[in-house]
Design a protein around this nucleic acid. Structure first.
Lengths: 102, 102
DNA sequence: AATATTAATCGTAATATTGCAATTAAACAA
DNA sequence: TTGTTTAATTGCAATATTACGATTAATATT
């Protein structure tokens, strides 16, 4: 029904389609690392909710988490982030050099 | 709860978060114009479903439609597309020059 | 071992999204 | 005017998403 590329774009976009996940990613970029509890406080959602959003980001490979004692340190997976960027940029930039027709 | 920017990013991303809308946009870019019925055939969804997806894209301002007789010609709103691109690029490119921490 | 800390998982309610058949609306054609 | 064509709207069922309290799991601390 859809091409693999179309499905890939939609999957990446979907994960950015909730402000909580946008906020999580911005936070991870800003401080280079974070713990689930910190994110919960910072963003204002309950811990299980944040954990669920983190899981979705992790499933797509955009973040990774390493256990540090009782905490888990999350950070951006820059390699996969770069791959995602390529896909999304290609989609966003397909307008060149076309223009409106109507 | 979230910043306006975070909400804006999420709204744009959300509309790209379904392969049907990705396919519609790609089609509009490819042929510079399209009619609702053509899209329905091309993509393989019922006409009301396509119409609904078009409405969402239109609500965000990414496409515009002009009535041409009994048909409606849809095309990309390149001005708003460019604005959207700026917002999304800024979000996607926030990783420079940071790297993984864990 | 017993307690404390932190994140993940489970269960579930509320809400949102998706898809389509049926219908309506609007413009054209005869 | 009457029919034809095309898109929008309505109504609804199926599914997915979101959020969180309660619980569990894992590790650290005493």
């Amino acid at each position: 029904m859809y091409t693999d590329r179309q499905k890939e774009i939609a999957l990446f976009a979907k994960v950015f389609g909730h402000p909580a996940r946008v906020a999580i990613l911005q936070q991870l970029f800003e401080i280079d690392a974070c713990y689930c509890g910190d994110l919960s406080e910072e963003i204002g959602l309950a811990q299980p909710t944040i954990s669920q959003h983190l899981k979705e980001l992790k499933t797509l490979g955009l973040i990774k988490g390493t256990v540090e004692g009782t905490k888990v340190c999350y950070c951006i997976d820059s390699e996969n982030w770069a791959k995602m960027k390529k896909v999304m940029h290609q989609f966003l930039n397909q307008d060149i050099p076309k223009a409106d027709c109507c």
